[in-house]
């Protein structure tokens, strides 16, 4: 269910958005509007356009038809408002940096030269790390952290940047269930602070517990709204085709597999 509209305009509004990469239409007529302070799961098959949608929201790919507005303006003009947590494969995790340095990068754009050590900036860094419960790891090397902790470091970086809209690309992949829950707790707190959060995920089993709304994407927007109501059999077939039967009872412990007792 869509929330009743608030005073603020919706932070993300997509109207008939089409994105073409090469000769292929990756996003076709995608429309939705996401209210402020919502935690939204983006689901769909690989190649369904989740990453491309994120790139369009970030202003990194041209929109062929239609539009995406971030707080009422074009994505290219909204730089800095949106924070992005990349997929783990996009990244060189062995890079020789500390947690503090990564979070510092969030304020690189806003600070003048040589002003790394200013007290104000250090406060921003510490506050941001506090919000993701990693303040005790501030001077550790990034490569010494676990996968889930690295995701939270990147989250802290987007907070330091001052972003109000957070995009996480498959942040649960390669992360154990305990760390996933920690991440969800952190996201819930951020949502309560008024952040609007979109997260691409493949984990359908826990989706209704974790997210307020879900956006089903398979080249077009198949459905958007309350996870309990949106994930109907028809939508599952639209999303995952013949394999959708595997998810027909998408509750914990009932995955549609015929496990031997």
């Amino acid at each position: 269910m869509m929330r009743t509209s608030q005073n603020n305009p919706c932070p993300i509004v997509s109207k008939g958005c089409c994105v073409q990469l090469g000769n292929e239409l990756i996003l076709d007529d995608v429309s939705f509007s996401i209210n402020e302070g919502n935690l939204v799961g983006v689901v769909g098959p690989n190649g369904g356009g989740k990453t491309t949608l994120f790139n369009a929201i970030l202003g990194l790919v041209p929109i062929a038809h239609g539009s995406i507005k971030i707080n009422g303006v074009d994505p290219k003009k909204a730089k800095g408002l949106i924070g992005y947590v990349p997929q783990r494969e996009e990244f060189n995790w062995k890079f020789h940096v500390t947690v503090r340095q990564v979070v510092q990068m969030g304020i690189t754009k806003n600070t003048s030269f040589f002003s790394f050590t200013s007290k104000h900036n250090q406060e921003i860094i510490e506050q941001s790390l506090g919000k993701v419960a990693l303040l005790d790891r501030i001077d550790d090397r990034l490569e010494d952290l676990s996968e889930g902790q690295r995701q939270r470091v990147f989250l802290a970086k987007t907070l330091a940047q001052g972003a109000n809209i957070l995009l996480l690309d498959e942040a649960f992949s390669g992360v154990d269930i305990g760390s996933q829950e920690t991440l969800v707790d952190v996201l819930r707190n951020l949502k309560n602070d008024g952040k609007t959060i979109l997260m691409a995920t493949h984990d359908l089993n826990t989706i209704s517990e974790r997210f307020d709304e879900i956006l089903c994407l398979n080249r077009h927007c198949c459905a958007y709204g309350d996870p309990g109501k949106v994930l109907t059999k028809e939508i599952m077939i639209e999303l995952y085709g013949s394999h959708s039967s595997m998810f027909k009872d998408h509750t914990l412990g009932k995955h549609g597999h015929n496990d031997v007792d």
């Binding site: 730089k79 800095g80 996009e90 510092q104 990068m105």
Partner: peptide, 19 residues
């Protein structure tokens, strides 16, 4: 230094932040 480090470590993030 800060700019070189940011674009080396996370070019996409740097682009998104407006660098």
């Amino acid at each position: 230094y800060k700019q070189f480090l940011f674009i080396s470590f996370d070019p996409k993030g740097a682009k998104i932040s407006g660098l």
